[in-house]
Design a binder for these strands. Structure first.
Lengths: 253, 253
DNA sequence: ACATGAATATTGGAT
DNA sequence: ATCCAATTTTCATGT
């Protein structure tokens, strides 16, 4: 897994190391160094000298990590051009990308460590509790929202956006459902209001609107009331207090 | 910068290493290993055995990186609880967090490398081209949007959200500006329409609406036309074709 | 290539 | 603590 490693290389050694390993197949290269980072593209930024972990993956993605946070200080997704060179005695890494046109340039002032890793691809990954999954679950069991619902459509496109769930209630009234996998905010309410308004215009029928989410913010609930819309609590994941729901998977000892 | 390092440690050695270094001050710990990762919280996920780089920062944030992409396979921002233990002969790392309640659990099957780094905090970081900066620039030079504008307010709160820029045009007509630092989409148009509608209701005056952005999507432009709203091109960054705009900073040889 | 919308979004700021 | 809005959002997906 650890392919190669160099402690405290000088600029020449660093450049040679990167030249050798950057082109390689499934190689992840890391550099721990004091460096300066400049970014120009969608925005522009300058990071003065500091200690960072620079991570270069085989797909051309770059990230520069500081001492805190999940988010890198600087990054570049899927760059098409990675160049390393000696410039005035210092190793300089330039990562470029077309579309959008942007660039990260890293000057290595003092390198503590450079290493090349070989990461075999993980075999399987499963995620549960996405909004897409919620949508499927509710479409096949609309009683979770309300008894007597008949689902007419899922992800129904309108000229103001796609309606998550479109149905008719037990009384035959049209119902638009806006789905959120996390706590619903005012934005969700505005979205719903837009859809409901459009459906009313198009059909000429009365239309109910429901935000379905595990929770609502207080202002969002007030906005719903003001607009004559509704909230229904729906959870994205099976209740973890009830371990029988998904035996094995959620049983974390 | 490289505080400590262990190649191919067994489970005991790994646990001891982590116990020693995880508590330490400004310490970033990395583990390169074949492992399994389980996450339960806002959603839930399982990653089967694969090679990953696990990064633990001093602030309690965790990320698990695979062979590609800027985004980690699994992560946890600012966890409050990090525990490492031996479980059936294997090192197991558990990272927990309250609010929201969630957890990542990593079982290390075969560890290639563990290292503790000490990253001194970077001294300075400057970002240019944010929307906030655009707002300040336009507020102090509204002529960039249109001649004769008088700015009435910035970030004006209404009950349907905050208006980026509120002004009166040369003819004295109210004008609502929705600002976007990147290409404006239909979402921006809907937002603007909402603000304009609300301001019309409240003031009873005619109100113009403008999306100001470096570009618009074609559907968004159509929506603007349909709603009687306008688009104005405004760039977030000084033109990089004109290197004199910001001498030095944008001059990347 | 363009446009849209979700995300375990993360993060910072305001209330 | 809660809520909102920006983000170099990234990323997958559909057209």
């Amino acid at each position: 897994m650890v392919h190669d490693q160099l402690l405290a290389p000088d600029a020449h050694a660093l450049v040679a190391f990167l030249d050798e390993h950057l082109g390689e197949g499934l190689c992840l290269v890391q550099i721990v160094a004091e460096c300066e980072v400049v970014y120009v593209g969608r925005a522009a930024s300058v990071a003065d000298a500091g200690d960072f972990v620079v991570m270069l993956k085989a797909d051309g993605s770059l990230q520069v990590h500081g001492y805190k946070g999940v988010k890198p200080v600087n990054w570049q997704p899927q760059a098409d051009h990675v160049v390393v060179a000696l410039d005035e005695g210092q190793a300089v890494l330039t990562v470029e990308r077309r579309s959008p046109e942007e660039m990260v340039r890293i000057v290595f002032l003092e390198t503590a460590l450079v290493q090349a890793l070989h990461l075999r691809e993980g075999s399987g990954f499963v995620l549960m509790g996405s909004e897409a999954e919620m949508q499927r679950a509710l479409a096949s069991a609309p009683g979770l929202i309300e008894d007597g619902l008949t689902v007419l459509d899922v992800e129904l496109p309108t000229d103001v956006g796609g309606i998550d769930l479109f149905a008719r209630d037990a009384a035959g009234v049209l119902l638009v459902v806006e789905l959120k996998r996390a706590k619903a905010t005012q934005e969700a309410v505005h979205q719903l209001a837009r859809y409901v308004g459009r459906v009313r215009e198009v059909t000429g029928e009365p239309v109910r609107g429901v935000v379905a989410a595990p929770a609502v913010t207080k202002p969002a609930l007030a906005a719903l009331a003001r607009l004559g819309l509704e909230f229904r609590e729906v959870t994205a994941l099976p209740d973890m207090e009830a371990p029988s729901a998904q035996p094995g998977l959620f049983a974390v000892p």
